Measured scan of single mutants.
Amino acid sequence: MTTFKLIINGKTLKGEITIEAVDAAEKEKIFKQYANDNGIDGEWTYDDATKTFTVTE
């Protein structure tokens, strides 16, 4: 398992979430669903070196 981080830079929601997953593709799906469930629609980036997804509205 690898630890992945999501950084949220939303208009109404900001924060960080850290979760373990098998791979980045699995985690991306979970993070995007979390963002969608919380009304966050923005630009996504991924840094493989730090295993960090960022979504910015």
Results as ranks from 00 to 15, higher is better:
D41C: 14
F31M: 11
F4S: 05
K29N: 11
K27S: 15
T54Q: 03
E16I: 14
A24R: 09
D37T: 10
V22C: 11
I30P: 01
A25Y: 08
M1G: 09
M1Q: 08
K51P: 02
I30E: 03
G42L: 10
A21I: 14
A35I: 13
M1A: 07
T54R: 04
T12L: 12
F31K: 01
F31R: 01
T56M: 05
A24I: 13
E57Y: 14
D23A: 07
E43V: 12
T52E: 02
D23R: 04
I40G: 01
K32H: 07
W44T: 01
G42K: 03
D47N: 06
F31D: 01
T50F: 02
F53T: 11
E20W: 14
F31V: 13
D37M: 10
K32W: 11
N9A: 07
I19A: 03
A24Q: 12
K29A: 10
W44E: 00
K14Q: 09
Y46S: 01
G15N: 07
K11R: 11
L6Y: 11
N38P: 02
A21N: 11
E20D: 09
T56L: 07
N38S: 08
I8C: 15
I19M: 06
A24W: 14
E28F: 15
T50E: 03
I40Q: 01
E26L: 09
Y34G: 01
I40H: 02
T18H: 09
T2R: 06
V55T: 02
T2V: 12
K14N: 08
N36M: 15
I40L: 07
V55D: 02
Y34F: 14
E20N: 10
I7M: 03
I8Y: 07
K27G: 15
E26Q: 08
Y46G: 00
K29Q: 10
M1Y: 13
D48F: 07
E43R: 05
I7G: 00
A49E: 07
W44M: 03
T52G: 01
G39F: 06
E26W: 11
K14H: 12
T56V: 09
T18R: 09
T52S: 03
V55G: 01
T18N: 05
K51I: 09
K51C: 12
F4N: 06
T12S: 08
A21C: 15
K11L: 12
T12H: 12
E43G: 04
I7T: 02
T2K: 05
F4Y: 14
I40T: 03
L13H: 10
I19V: 06
T2D: 06
I40E: 02
K27M: 15
I40P: 01
K14M: 12
K14S: 07
G39I: 04
D37I: 08
G10D: 02
K51R: 11
A24P: 08
A35Q: 03
I19W: 14
T18I: 12
T18S: 07
V55H: 02
E20R: 11
T45W: 06
T52D: 01
K11N: 09
A49Q: 10
T18A: 06
E16M: 11
D37C: 14
K32V: 09
E28S: 06
A35N: 02
G42H: 03
F4K: 05
K14F: 13
T18Y: 14
A35C: 13
K5G: 01
T12I: 11
D41N: 12
I40N: 01
G42A: 05
Q33F: 06
I30V: 06
T18G: 03
K27D: 02
A21F: 14
I17W: 13
T18D: 04
I7C: 13
G15L: 15
D48C: 05
A25F: 12
T3K: 13
F4H: 09
T50C: 07
T18V: 10
L6H: 01
T50L: 04
D41K: 13
T52Y: 01
E26G: 12
T2E: 08
T50R: 03
T45P: 00
K29I: 10
G42V: 10
T12D: 06
F53V: 04
A35W: 08
I30H: 05
T54A: 02
I17D: 00
T50G: 01
A49T: 09
K11F: 11
N38K: 09
F31T: 01
A21D: 03
E57I: 15
N9H: 06
T50D: 03
T45N: 04
D47Y: 02
T18C: 15
T18L: 12
E20F: 13
T56G: 05
E26Y: 09
M1D: 05
K14W: 14
A25G: 12
G42P: 02
K27L: 15
T45L: 05
T50V: 01
E16S: 10
E20T: 10
T2F: 14
D37Q: 08
E57T: 14
K51G: 05
F53W: 07
L6T: 00
I30A: 06
E57Q: 12
Y46F: 04
I7Y: 05
E57C: 15
Y46H: 00
N36H: 14
T45H: 08
I7L: 03
T50S: 09
K5C: 13
A35G: 02
N38F: 15
A25R: 07
A49M: 08
K29C: 13
F31E: 00
Q33M: 09
A35E: 01
F31Y: 03
F31N: 02
K11M: 11
K32D: 05
T54V: 05
N36E: 13
E20M: 13
T45C: 08
A25S: 10
K14R: 08
I19E: 02
T45F: 08
T54C: 13
G15A: 15
L6C: 15
D48P: 09
N38Q: 10
N38G: 04
D37W: 09
N9V: 12
A21P: 01
A49D: 08
T3D: 07
T56H: 07
F31S: 00
T45Q: 05
K32F: 09
Y46I: 00
K29M: 10
A24Y: 11
K29E: 10
N38Y: 14
E28T: 04
N36S: 13
G10H: 03
D48N: 04
Q33L: 04
K11S: 07
E20C: 14
T2C: 15
T56S: 06
I8G: 00
T2S: 07
L6E: 04
T18F: 12
E28R: 05
N9W: 13
F4L: 08
I30K: 04
Y34H: 01
Y46P: 00
L13N: 06
E57F: 15
N38C: 14
F53Q: 01
T52N: 01
G42E: 02
D48I: 07
A25M: 09
F4I: 15
D47L: 00
G42I: 10
A24L: 12
K29V: 08
T56N: 07
T50A: 03
E16L: 11
E43T: 10
G39S: 05
K14A: 10
D41A: 11
W44R: 00
T54M: 07
T3M: 10
T54S: 05
I30C: 15
D41Q: 12
K51W: 11
N9G: 03
A49H: 08
F31C: 10
I19Q: 02
A24E: 11
F4V: 13
T54E: 03
D23Y: 10
D48K: 04
G10N: 04
E57A: 10
K27P: 15
G15D: 09
T3F: 13
W44A: 01
L6K: 00
A24D: 15
G42T: 02
T3L: 11
T45V: 06
I17Q: 01
A25C: 11
N38D: 02
F53A: 05
A21M: 13
I8E: 00
D47V: 03
Y46M: 01
V22K: 10
I7K: 04
T45I: 06
K5P: 07
K11G: 06
V55P: 01
K29S: 10
I17F: 13
T56F: 08
D23W: 11
G39T: 02
E26M: 09
A25L: 10
F53H: 01
I40W: 13
D37G: 04
A35K: 02
W44G: 00
V55A: 02
A49N: 08
D23V: 04
W44N: 01
G42F: 12
W44C: 05
